[in-house]
Design a protein around this nucleic acid. Structure first.
Length: 654
DNA sequence: CTAGGGTTAG
């Protein structure tokens, strides 16, 4: 580094930091080293007093006495004395941990004054200080002025931008760093990986990592695993994970969390079991992901077991929020409520989770009441909270409340209505039979309606049997997503409702041409730590014969109670008896019957299914709950049905 | 002096 460049740093910095020009005036030689004798000032001017000042300063720095160190720094400044870099670095670290911003800046000013040339490592410490104080402009400014930048300098800045909104800046810095001839190390890569904005960038970075042989580092690997999971490729992440010779708890957490976030609860829980077998103990982060796995699979019993371990970390907000969500999504509002009231710190997510949980389980009024309680508690609702409230309104036909919250959300909570909020309103109006108003709202939307928007409208058309609008909406959906199997089914059911078997047939032909397979209905039930899955018309279950026998008996009993199978929900065009049979095979019926056979009397039957419940199964479950005196709970992809005493929590409105 | 994991919707 040339001398000229070095001095130019000092001069540039004068603009933002008042620096004594005396040092510049004196034109100190560059090789003048304060490291050699910390107490010396300028050749020929050292004295015992001066030595005492520097020694005092050094002592205070190591004692972490900031006020006294700053005083000593003042007199050093006055007498143009210097301590060594390590001492300054200690003081800066001390300022960081005490959040002493003003003092930190003073040290900065001091080490750049009077021609003292701070070593790169000392500037790095200052850089780190600004980052820790979140003074990113100051950090960037200092970085720009550095006469020499090493790996640490570059990595510090890359880490800043990797954690910020401008991730591309981190990648740009990496390129600049390479051009500058500085080799990135494992620290650099584990930071920059978080900045990858698509899968191809990620793969390029992975190539660089392999080329320089850094792929064995656990930090780099955990960053790779996270990134692949973030881009929806948990299988690629698992490959990287399985190649690892050694792993640690964080790496396990990355892969377990990765699958949980990609809603693969099954694989997430399998990995958790593997982790336990490898002798690792779960921490807060592991448990959060495991709970999320239980949530997506609706495994209440397993979730309860996890709860026992959660108690050890009962001050952890994120973990408790995951626990709340687990109880809500497993349909146990009693547990969710008591967990919620036991939390002494609650944030937006805690409240939102509870509001959404109440809404999905059919307690719309309670959801709205809780939202009002949240407003008085002083926690500001966000985008998702309001979505939960609108969801509550739409699922109970509370049109006035919904319109009130939707109309005033910008003014009251400062949240602009987004596509999802419009979606809830379209749902609300549509279900309430106000299809014209729903259509009007679609035209008023500030953002383009998407597949979900039209699918929502289509759902309302089905409820109100509005054939023309249904066909219009379905065409919109299929033009945006020609492979949406659910829409073909919905449209087909609408045709079937009005006996338009020819159109049903045409539609099936279209599906065949386009190679669209209807997702088979599937239901799951957890019994005694085992999950039993039932597919539509499935014969694979070991007790399938007994289940079918029990199911026919139950259907007979229910028919005596007035049950009439509703054949509108049969997809195929079949007749009479045969039609009833294909209804009987609906997976949720098999699962319910199996639950009643296997669970102790009085215990609630909890089912999770992949498709929305059909009207016939809904009637079936209501009657069965009454006859058997059982609480039957079915979770479909959107909401929950609590069947009790012959009625459902959704009030037949879904 | 620089690096890793977890929570709310659809």
């Amino acid at each position: 580094m040339s001398r000229f460049k070095c001095y130019s740093v000092t001069v540039t910095l004068q603009t933002s930091f008042p620096i004594s020009v005396l040092g510049l005036f004196l034109q100190l030689p560059r090789f003048y080293s304060v490291e050699v004798s910390a107490w010396r000032t300028r050749p020929g001017t050292f004295s015992t007093d001066h030595r005492d000042i520097v020694n005092e300063f050094t002592t205070y720095c190591y004692q972490k006495d900031i006020p006294k160190a700053m005083k000593a720094l003042d007199s050093m400044q006055k007498h143009k004395l210097w301590a060594d870099s390590i001492t300054y670095a200690e003081l800066i670290k001390c300022c960081i941990s005490h959040r002493a911003i003003k003092e930190g800046k003073q040290v900065h000013q001091h080490v750049f004054s009077n021609g003292y040339e701070p070593k790169t490592f000392l500037i790095n410490t200052l850089l780190n200080m600004y980052v820790k104080f979140n003074l990113l402009h100051e950090a960037q400014f200092l970085f720009d002025q550095m006469p020499e930048r090493n790996v640490v300098s570059w990595t510090t800045m890359i880490a800043v931008y990797s954690n910020s909104e401008c991730k591309y800046k981190a990648l740009r810095l990496l390129i600049m760093m390479l051009r500058d001839g500085v080799s990135p190390n494992m620290y650099t890569y584990s930071s920059v990986l978080r900045a990858s904005e698509d899968i191809s960038t990620l793969k390029q970075l992975q190539c660089c990592i392999i080329k320089v042989g850094l792929e064995l580092d656990v930090f780099v690997r955990s960053a790779l695993i996270d990134s692949y999971c973030k881009w929806g490729e948990p299988k690629a992440a698992l490959n990287i994970f399985d190649e690892m010779v050694t792993s640690d708890l964080v790496v396990w957490n990355s892969i377990i969390g990765g699958f949980a976030q990609n809603s693969d609860g099954d694989e997430s829980l399998n990995l958790f079991i593997r982790m336990k077998r490898s002798g690792f103990w779960a921490d807060q982060s592991t448990l959060t992901s495991v709970l999320r796995g239980c949530t997506s699979l609706a495994l209440l019993e397993l979730g309860r077991q996890v709860h026992v371990h959660v108690i050890k970390f009962d001050r952890d907000l994120v973990l408790n929020n995951a626990l709340l969500d687990m109880y809500c999504k497993c349909g146990s509002l009693e547990d969710a409520n008591s967990a919620f009231s036991r939390m002494d710190v609650k944030d937006v997510i805690s409240w939102s989770t509870m509001i959404i949980g109440l809404a999905q389980n059919g307690y719309s009024q309670k959801a709205i009441d809780l939202f009002e309680a949240m407003r008085t508690s002083g926690i500001k609702p966000n985008y998702i909270t309001i979505l939960g409230v609108l969801f509550a309104c739409s699922h109970s036909g509370l049109v006035n409340d919904g319109q009130y919250y939707f109309g005033s959300m910008k003014m009251l909570f400062g949240v602009d209505p987004g596509r999802e909020h419009y979606g809830c309103m379209i749902d609300l109006l549509g279900r309430a039979g106000k299809l014209d108003e729903a259509m009007k709202l679609i035209h008023e939307m500030k953002c383009e309606p998407d597949v979900v928007t039209w699918r929502t409208l289509l759902g309302s058309c089905r409820v109100h049997r509005n054939m023309d609008l249904a066909e219009y909406a379905a065409k919109k959906v299929l033009s945006l997503d020609p492979h949406d199997a659910g829409t073909y089914t919905l449209l087909s059911n609408i045709y079937a409702n009005s006996q338009r078997w020819e159109d049903v047939e045409k539609l099936r032909g279209l599906m065949k041409d386009r190679g669209i397979k209807k997702e088979p209905g599937c239901s799951w039930i957890e019994i005694n730590k085992q999950v039993h899955a039932f597919l539509l018309g499935d014969k694979a279950h070991p007790q399938i014969n007994a289940i079918h026998q029990a199911l026919s008996q139950i259907i007979w009993r229910l028919k005596e109670e007035g049950y009439v199978p509703d054949t509108n929900f049969v997809f195929q065009d079949v007749e009479g008896e045969q039609m009833e049979n294909s209804l009987a095979y609906h997976s949720e019926k098999l699962a319910i019957v199996f639950g009643i056979m296997s669970l102790p009397k009085g215990k609630a039957v909890r089912i999770r299914k992949n498709l929305r419940i059909c009207g016939d199964c809904h009637v079936f479950a209501k009657l069965l709950a009454k006859v058997e005196n059982r609480h039957i709970i079915i979770r479909d992809p959107i909401r929950y049905h609590h069947f009790q005493d012959g009625s459902c929590s959704c009030g037949d409105y879904w």
